[in-house]
Deep mutational scan, measured.
Amino acid sequence: RSTHNEMEKNRRAHLRLCLEKLKGLVPLGPESSRHTTLSLLTKAKLHIKKLE
């Protein structure tokens, strides 16, 4: 059980790190620190579409 908890903790930490990296790559506007994961991913998707 503790192994599972540790793996889950590591998974969440990795996900958080990846989202922070994404936040640095996507133009978010003036309220960049107030975005939810969903809004960050939505803006990333729109940004990628613009680049295509």
Results as ranks from 00 to 15, higher is better:
residue 1 R to S: 02
residue 1 R to L: 00
residue 2 S to Y: 05
residue 2 S to T: 15
residue 2 S to A: 07
residue 2 S to V: 05
residue 2 S to E: 06
residue 2 S to K: 05
residue 2 S to D: 10
residue 2 S to W: 01
residue 2 S to L: 06
residue 2 S to N: 14
residue 2 S to G: 11
residue 2 S to C: 03
residue 2 S to M: 13
residue 3 T to Q: 07
residue 3 T to A: 09
residue 3 T to G: 09
residue 3 T to E: 11
residue 3 T to K: 06
residue 3 T to Y: 07
residue 3 T to P: 08
residue 3 T to F: 04
residue 3 T to H: 06
residue 3 T to N: 12
residue 3 T to V: 07
residue 4 H to C: 10
residue 4 H to A: 10
residue 4 H to N: 13
residue 4 H to Q: 13
residue 4 H to G: 14
residue 4 H to L: 14
residue 4 H to T: 14
residue 4 H to S: 13
residue 4 H to D: 14
residue 4 H to E: 11
residue 5 N to C: 12
residue 5 N to K: 11
residue 5 N to S: 12
residue 5 N to T: 12
residue 5 N to Y: 07
residue 5 N to V: 13
residue 5 N to E: 15
residue 5 N to Q: 14
residue 5 N to D: 06
residue 5 N to F: 07
residue 5 N to A: 14
residue 5 N to M: 13
residue 6 E to F: 09
residue 6 E to K: 12
residue 6 E to W: 06
residue 6 E to C: 07
residue 6 E to D: 13
residue 6 E to A: 08
residue 6 E to S: 13
residue 6 E to R: 04
residue 6 E to M: 05
residue 6 E to P: 14
residue 7 M to E: 05
residue 7 M to A: 07
residue 7 M to D: 08
residue 7 M to N: 09
residue 7 M to F: 07
residue 7 M to K: 05
residue 7 M to L: 10
residue 7 M to I: 06
residue 7 M to P: 13
residue 8 E to S: 05
residue 8 E to W: 10
residue 8 E to T: 08
residue 8 E to Q: 09
residue 8 E to P: 06
residue 8 E to M: 05
residue 8 E to C: 06
residue 8 E to I: 10
residue 8 E to V: 10
residue 8 E to D: 10
residue 9 K to V: 06
residue 9 K to P: 07
residue 9 K to Q: 07
residue 9 K to L: 05
residue 9 K to A: 05
residue 9 K to H: 03
residue 9 K to W: 04
residue 9 K to D: 08
residue 9 K to F: 02
residue 9 K to S: 10
residue 9 K to G: 11
residue 10 N to G: 11
residue 10 N to W: 04
residue 10 N to S: 10
residue 10 N to I: 03
residue 10 N to H: 09
residue 10 N to R: 04
residue 10 N to A: 08
residue 10 N to Y: 01
residue 10 N to P: 15
residue 10 N to V: 08
residue 11 R to L: 09
residue 11 R to E: 02
residue 11 R to W: 12
residue 11 R to A: 08
residue 11 R to D: 06
residue 11 R to N: 12
residue 11 R to S: 10
residue 11 R to P: 14
residue 11 R to G: 10
residue 11 R to M: 06
residue 12 R to P: 10
residue 12 R to Q: 04
residue 12 R to W: 12
residue 12 R to Y: 03
residue 12 R to F: 06
residue 12 R to E: 00
residue 12 R to S: 05
residue 12 R to N: 08
residue 12 R to C: 08
residue 12 R to M: 10
residue 12 R to K: 12
residue 12 R to H: 12
residue 13 A to M: 09
residue 13 A to G: 11
residue 13 A to N: 10
residue 13 A to Y: 06
residue 13 A to C: 13
residue 13 A to R: 07
residue 13 A to I: 01
residue 13 A to T: 07
residue 13 A to L: 03
residue 13 A to F: 07
residue 13 A to H: 06
residue 14 H to A: 03
residue 14 H to K: 11
residue 14 H to I: 12
residue 14 H to V: 09
residue 14 H to C: 07
residue 14 H to W: 07
residue 14 H to M: 11
residue 14 H to D: 02
residue 14 H to L: 12
residue 15 L to F: 09
residue 15 L to N: 02
residue 15 L to R: 00
residue 15 L to A: 07
residue 15 L to K: 01
residue 15 L to P: 03
residue 15 L to V: 11
residue 15 L to Y: 01
residue 15 L to W: 14
residue 17 L to P: 07
residue 17 L to C: 10
residue 17 L to H: 13
residue 17 L to Y: 07
residue 17 L to T: 08
residue 17 L to E: 12
residue 17 L to Q: 12
residue 17 L to S: 14
residue 17 L to G: 13
residue 17 L to D: 02
residue 17 L to R: 12
residue 18 C to L: 13
residue 18 C to P: 06
residue 18 C to D: 00
residue 18 C to E: 00
residue 18 C to K: 00
residue 18 C to Q: 01
residue 18 C to I: 14
residue 18 C to S: 01
residue 19 L to E: 00
residue 19 L to G: 01
residue 19 L to V: 03
residue 19 L to H: 00
residue 19 L to T: 04
residue 19 L to C: 04
residue 19 L to Y: 03
residue 19 L to W: 15
residue 19 L to M: 04
residue 20 E to H: 07
residue 20 E to N: 06
residue 20 E to K: 03
residue 20 E to W: 02
residue 20 E to D: 10
residue 20 E to I: 01
residue 20 E to L: 05
residue 21 K to E: 01
residue 21 K to H: 03
residue 21 K to D: 00
residue 21 K to C: 04
residue 21 K to I: 03
residue 21 K to S: 00
residue 21 K to F: 04
residue 21 K to N: 01
residue 21 K to L: 01
residue 22 L to D: 00
residue 22 L to T: 00
residue 22 L to V: 05
residue 22 L to G: 00
residue 22 L to C: 02
residue 22 L to R: 00
residue 22 L to P: 01
residue 22 L to I: 07
residue 22 L to A: 02
residue 23 K to H: 01
residue 23 K to E: 01
residue 23 K to F: 04
residue 23 K to L: 03
residue 23 K to A: 07
residue 23 K to C: 02
residue 23 K to W: 03
residue 23 K to P: 00
residue 23 K to M: 05
residue 24 G to P: 04
residue 24 G to Y: 06
residue 24 G to S: 14
residue 24 G to M: 13
residue 24 G to C: 12
residue 24 G to I: 06
residue 25 L to G: 01
residue 25 L to P: 01
residue 25 L to H: 00
residue 25 L to D: 00
residue 25 L to T: 00
residue 25 L to V: 04
residue 25 L to N: 00
residue 25 L to Y: 02
residue 25 L to Q: 03
residue 26 V to Q: 01
residue 26 V to L: 12
residue 26 V to D: 00
residue 26 V to I: 14
residue 26 V to K: 08
residue 26 V to S: 04
residue 26 V to H: 04
residue 26 V to Y: 03
residue 26 V to G: 03
residue 27 P to R: 15
residue 27 P to A: 12
residue 27 P to G: 15
residue 27 P to V: 08
residue 27 P to E: 07
residue 27 P to C: 14
residue 27 P to Q: 13
residue 27 P to K: 15
residue 27 P to H: 14
residue 27 P to W: 11
residue 27 P to Y: 09
residue 27 P to T: 14
residue 28 L to E: 02
residue 28 L to M: 10
residue 28 L to G: 10
residue 28 L to W: 15
residue 28 L to Y: 05
residue 28 L to D: 00
residue 28 L to I: 09
residue 28 L to S: 07
residue 28 L to R: 14
residue 28 L to H: 08
residue 29 G to L: 11
residue 29 G to D: 08
residue 29 G to Y: 09
residue 29 G to T: 06
residue 29 G to N: 14
residue 29 G to F: 13
residue 29 G to S: 11
residue 30 P to Y: 11
residue 30 P to N: 14
residue 30 P to I: 15
residue 30 P to M: 11
residue 30 P to R: 15
residue 30 P to C: 13
residue 30 P to H: 13
residue 32 S to P: 11
residue 32 S to Y: 06
residue 32 S to K: 14
residue 32 S to N: 10
residue 32 S to D: 04
residue 32 S to E: 08
residue 32 S to L: 13
residue 32 S to V: 09
residue 32 S to W: 11
residue 32 S to H: 09
residue 32 S to C: 10
residue 33 S to Q: 11
residue 33 S to E: 06
residue 33 S to G: 11
residue 33 S to N: 12
residue 33 S to P: 13
residue 33 S to W: 15
residue 33 S to L: 15
residue 33 S to A: 15
residue 33 S to D: 09
residue 33 S to I: 15
residue 34 R to D: 02
residue 34 R to W: 10
residue 34 R to H: 01
residue 34 R to P: 06
residue 34 R to Y: 05
residue 34 R to Q: 12
residue 34 R to T: 05
residue 34 R to G: 09
residue 34 R to V: 08
residue 35 H to D: 03
residue 35 H to N: 08
residue 35 H to M: 07
residue 35 H to K: 15
residue 35 H to S: 13
residue 35 H to R: 14
residue 35 H to I: 07
residue 35 H to V: 09
residue 36 T to S: 10
residue 36 T to H: 09
residue 36 T to D: 09
residue 36 T to G: 14
residue 36 T to Q: 12
residue 36 T to Y: 13
residue 36 T to L: 13
residue 36 T to V: 13
residue 36 T to F: 14
residue 36 T to A: 10
residue 37 T to N: 09
residue 37 T to Y: 12
residue 37 T to M: 15
residue 37 T to H: 13
residue 37 T to G: 12
residue 37 T to I: 14
residue 37 T to R: 11
residue 38 L to C: 14
residue 38 L to D: 11
residue 38 L to I: 11
residue 38 L to H: 08
residue 38 L to R: 09
residue 38 L to M: 14
residue 38 L to Q: 12
residue 39 S to F: 04
residue 39 S to D: 07
residue 39 S to N: 15
residue 39 S to M: 01
residue 39 S to C: 09
residue 39 S to G: 10
residue 39 S to T: 13
residue 39 S to A: 10
residue 39 S to V: 03
residue 39 S to L: 02
residue 39 S to K: 15
residue 39 S to E: 05
residue 39 S to Y: 01
residue 39 S to R: 12
residue 40 L to K: 05
residue 40 L to Q: 01
residue 40 L to M: 09
residue 40 L to Y: 03
residue 40 L to H: 02
residue 40 L to R: 05
residue 40 L to T: 05
residue 40 L to F: 14
residue 40 L to S: 03
residue 40 L to E: 02
residue 40 L to W: 14
residue 40 L to V: 07
residue 41 L to S: 02
residue 41 L to W: 15
residue 41 L to P: 01
residue 41 L to M: 02
residue 41 L to R: 01
residue 41 L to H: 00
residue 41 L to Y: 06
residue 41 L to N: 02
residue 41 L to G: 01
residue 41 L to I: 14
residue 42 T to Y: 03
residue 42 T to F: 05
residue 42 T to D: 12
residue 42 T to M: 08
residue 42 T to L: 09
residue 42 T to W: 04
residue 42 T to V: 05
residue 42 T to E: 08
residue 43 K to V: 02
residue 43 K to T: 04
residue 43 K to Y: 03
residue 43 K to I: 01
residue 43 K to R: 09
residue 43 K to H: 04
residue 43 K to N: 04
residue 44 A to T: 02
residue 44 A to V: 09
residue 44 A to W: 11
residue 44 A to S: 02
residue 44 A to G: 02
residue 44 A to M: 09
residue 44 A to Y: 02
residue 44 A to F: 11
residue 44 A to D: 00
residue 45 K to R: 12
residue 45 K to E: 00
residue 45 K to F: 02
residue 45 K to G: 05
residue 45 K to A: 04
residue 45 K to H: 06
residue 45 K to Y: 03
residue 45 K to D: 02
residue 45 K to I: 05
residue 45 K to W: 07
residue 45 K to M: 01
residue 46 L to I: 13
residue 46 L to R: 13
residue 46 L to H: 15
residue 46 L to T: 10
residue 46 L to Y: 11
residue 46 L to F: 08
residue 46 L to A: 15
residue 46 L to K: 15
residue 46 L to P: 02
residue 46 L to D: 09
residue 47 H to W: 13
residue 47 H to L: 15
residue 47 H to M: 15
residue 47 H to N: 13
residue 47 H to G: 14
residue 47 H to C: 14
residue 47 H to F: 15
residue 47 H to Q: 15
residue 48 I to K: 01
residue 48 I to F: 12
residue 48 I to T: 02
residue 48 I to W: 08
residue 48 I to N: 04
residue 48 I to E: 04
residue 48 I to D: 04
residue 48 I to R: 03
residue 48 I to M: 11
residue 48 I to H: 01
residue 49 K to A: 06
residue 49 K to W: 03
residue 49 K to Q: 03
residue 49 K to H: 01
residue 49 K to F: 04
residue 49 K to D: 00
residue 49 K to S: 06
residue 49 K to R: 11
residue 49 K to C: 04
residue 49 K to P: 08
residue 49 K to G: 03
residue 49 K to N: 01
residue 50 K to W: 06
residue 50 K to R: 08
residue 50 K to M: 04
residue 50 K to S: 03
residue 50 K to L: 11
residue 50 K to G: 03
residue 50 K to E: 03
residue 50 K to F: 09
residue 51 L to E: 00
residue 51 L to Y: 06
residue 51 L to N: 03
residue 51 L to H: 15
residue 51 L to M: 04
residue 51 L to S: 06
residue 51 L to C: 02
residue 51 L to K: 05
residue 51 L to I: 01
residue 51 L to F: 05
residue 51 L to T: 04
residue 52 E to P: 15
residue 52 E to Y: 11
residue 52 E to K: 15
residue 52 E to H: 14
residue 52 E to I: 11
residue 52 E to W: 14
